[in-house]
Design a protein around this nucleic acid. Structure first.
Length: 695
DNA sequence: AGCACGCCGACT
DNA sequence: GTCGGCGTGCTC
């Protein structure tokens, strides 16, 4: 007598199969078990899903069902709560349960047969090898935890109340607000220590694993002897499976990972910490577009465990939640050891004498300041958010510009390998010696990127050791680490880079940080650009003067054409709160998040007309619904880079006063959008992005 | 997404 | 007469 069970399989989104599928099994199989099932002519991995199958008209007759092929029963089933988290994420971000569930498992787990899995688990048993702190092979003596500052002690006392109250309800999320160097990490460490001592597992999320080696090192050092694993996409498939299994089996007590780790299976989870919670990399940008930070908050509530969101410049969403009391704000107002924040100097570019043609990226006063640091044997960090040599190549004769033939964007001039490269589709060609249109020899770079900045610095400061770190110099695995090592060892005087260098690195000897040209974000059409710029500049400023004795001399230079802008005024005072107040006021009057909730419907087609037709039809359908009454559906517009790889991209914004109303519309909309896709033949693909970062 | 089936052009 | 182009349709 076989029975019916639901199995979540990786059925693609546009198939319309969004719910788990029904299969048959001779024996009962525990929910959460990994199985292999047939789908069409293929055999796929699936997860037995808790809950009853669909009933009524949608349900298939038992005679139409196919049997489960194999059960991977060597693996303990995934927990009910894990399934709940996945189900929530799938419904909130409008993806199929199977897609979310399978895509957040280690890829290797999907390919193993029951026998292979059994072998893998046996191997794991035999040598629980480097499960211990990976950074220190020999059992290093645990360092004495530092004495807490009064602020830290206060924060921890509040946290203790929260942690010690084993309520039936989840504690409120904690927003840990403190500038760089105020000791947030120590708070994570103490909170983790507490949870670990209670026999619980701890999950720590970081924006990008290779950019935060220091946080990893501090956990490894403090909890030497406590099994700890990391979870991120840079691991080899085998490592990722191994580490995931250690967490799933409850052997790893501490899990440090990037956004995908929010879905780690942690049977004894006791605490979640999200470092740099404002960081945009917590939002997945393709497939299921989830926010790991938001899911961490949801998961904490689901598991009734505390969650700490830490930042010096919290997201306005989190800040607002703290203002309304939904989150508990705990502040660390000062730098440890009373170190001052670097002095901010706004340099008004309008005061430079205007010379025709040639403009310099570096104002003379900044250059002088750099020279001074150089002579004092101190390091400087100069950043410019644009890699390559120049963003565009230009013919002075006929006006030709280095447009990408496949995208509506310019190809960037890379001098190092003499190429014109499109940063959107990757199309790359040798730099032409003459203008391809008129044959003129006088083709010149326009504007500047990090490559050129590096060159100009080397020329202006003879003898200075200039190093550059950006996506181009760190393409090879391990180069970032070795470059950073060189900086730490004092082999570099001036470090040039994109925003990559502003994140997380603890450069002890840097006393000057300079932002070359950050203005563009002030007038961006993206409403979150100012928030990101402020966070970036604050974070960059935090790179300087981390040694208390140097702090007094440390400076952050900002070259700007708009020194009176409110953002820069707030930056001068290191005043995030003033900045947040003004931004929130702007958001409120513009009806933007957190005062409204957004979703984007995107469409791609060979022609803009085809994409537009689909979006317009979708809008017409939605607007006829009574559920759309309070919602605003804006007309379709081309995306900021309208064409990528010969595909025209348009998007349509939906704005709702409440999350619930937006969700209700999306739920009604999905089946219709699938149907519309079939009618609109020219349409290549469509997708919704709930809570988009940028519009 | 895969992986079929299905109906029109150049080959041994 | 076949081999195969990729258009369109389905997967519990």
């Amino acid at each position: 007598m076989s029975q019916r069970l639901r199995v979540a399989v990786e059925a693609p989104q546009h198939s319309g199969l969004s719910a788990p599928l029904d299969y048959l099994s001779e024996q009962p199989i525990a929910p959460g078990s990994l199985v292999r099932v047939p789908l069409g002519r293929r055999e796929l991995a699936g997860i037995v899903w808790p809950g009853p199958s669909e009933e009524g008209a949608a349900a298939l007759d038992e005679a139409q069902l196919r049997p489960v092929l194999a059960v991977l029963d060597a693996l303990p089933p995934l927990s009910k709560r894990w399934c709940e988290l996945v189900e929530f994420a799938a419904s909130y971000y409008q993806r199929s349960i199977g897609e979310v569930a399978l895509s957040v498992l280690p890829p290797q787990l999907r390919e193993l047969s029951p026998e292979q899995l059994q072998a893998r688990l046996k191997k794991l048993d035999k040598k629980p090898k480097k499960l211990q702190a990976e950074a220190s092979p020999e059992p290093a003596p645990r360092p004495e935890p530092p004495t807490l500052s009064p602020d830290q002690a206060l924060v921890l006392a509040r946290l203790d109340e929260l942690l010690l109250t084993p309520g039936d309800t989840a504690p409120p999320p904690v927003l840990l607000y403190g500038v760089t160097g105020s000791g947030k990490t120590e708070v994570y460490l103490r909170a983790a220590e507490h949870a670990l001592s209670q026999g619980r597992q701890v999950l720590v999320l970081v924006p990008e694993i290779n950019l935060t080696p220091q946080l990893e090192a501090r956990f490894a050092e403090r909890f030497a002897g406590t099994p700890m694993v990391s979870l991120h996409s840079a691991l080899t498939p085998a490592q990722r499976l191994g580490n995931w299994l250690q967490a799933h089996l409850g052997r790893a007590r501490l899990v440090l990972g990037t956004r995908l780790a929010v879905f780690a299976s942690l049977p004894e989870l006791g605490l979640i910490a999200v470092d740099e919670e404002h960081d945009p990399s917590y939002k997945q940008q393709d497939g299921a577009r989830y926010s790991a930070r938001d899911l961490a908050v949801y998961r904490a509530r689901l598991e009734k465990v505390p969650v700490i969101l830490g930042s010096a410049t919290p997201s306005l969403e989190s800040w607002q939640h703290a203002n309304t009391g939904r989150y508990l704000r705990l502040a660390l107002p000062g730098r440890i050891g009373g170190g001052a924040l670097p002095r901010v100097r706004l340099f008004d570019m309008n005061t430079l004498p205007r010379r025709k043609g040639v403009s310099t990226a570096l104002s003379p006063p900044l250059l002088a300041a750099l020279r001074q640091r150089l002579e004092a044997g101190e390091q400087s960090l100069v950043f410019l958010n644009r890699r390559g040599y120049a963003p565009v190549l230009h013919c002075a004769e006929c006006g030709w510009k280095s447009e990408c033939p496949h995208c509506s964007a310019y190809r960037v001039f890379h001098k190092a390998d003499r190429t014109l490269r499109c940063h959107h589709c990757g199309f790359s060609q040798r730099v032409p010696h003459e203008c391809p249109d008129c044959g003129n020899q006088d083709v010149a770079p326009l504007g500047r990127g990090t490559e050129q900045l590096e060159e100009q610095l080397a020329a202006a400061l003879p003898g200075a050791r200039v190093a550059r770190i950006d996506a181009d110099t760190t393409r090879l695995k391990g180069t970032l680490e070795s470059q950073l090592q060189a900086v730490h060892e004092g082999e570099v005087d001036i470090l040039v880079g994109t925003q990559m260098v502003t994140k997380g690195h603890d450069f002890r000897r840097i006393t000057l940080v300079a932002a070359i040209n950050p203005d563009s974000a002030l007038f961006s059409s993206d409403f979150r650009a100012p928030e990101r710029l402020f966070a970036l500049l604050m974070q960059a400023a935090g790179r300087a003067g981390r040694d208390a004795e140097q702090a007094a001399r440390s400076e952050m230079w900002v070259q700007t054409w708009h020194p009176e802008h409110a953002l820069y005024r707030a930056l001068l005072q290191h005043d995030f709160e003033a900045f947040a107040r003004s931004q929130l006021a702007e958001r409120e009057s513009a009806g933007l998040p957190p005062y409204s909730h957004l979703a984007l419907l995107r469409a791609e087609a060979r022609t803009a007309e085809a994409a537009q037709a689909f979006l317009s039809a979708a809008a017409r359908w939605a607007q006829a619904l009574p559920e759309a009454r309070d919602l605003m559906i804006y007309p379709p517009v081309p995306m900021s880079v309208a064409r990528v790889a010969n595909m025209e991209r348009l998007q349509m914004l939906v704005e709702s006063p409440t999350r619930g109303a937006l969700q209700r519309l999306l739920w009604l909309w999905m089946p219709e959008l699938h149907a519309l896709k079939r009618e609109h033949r020219g349409l290549q693909r469509w997708a919704v992005d709930v809570d988009p970062l940028a519009i």
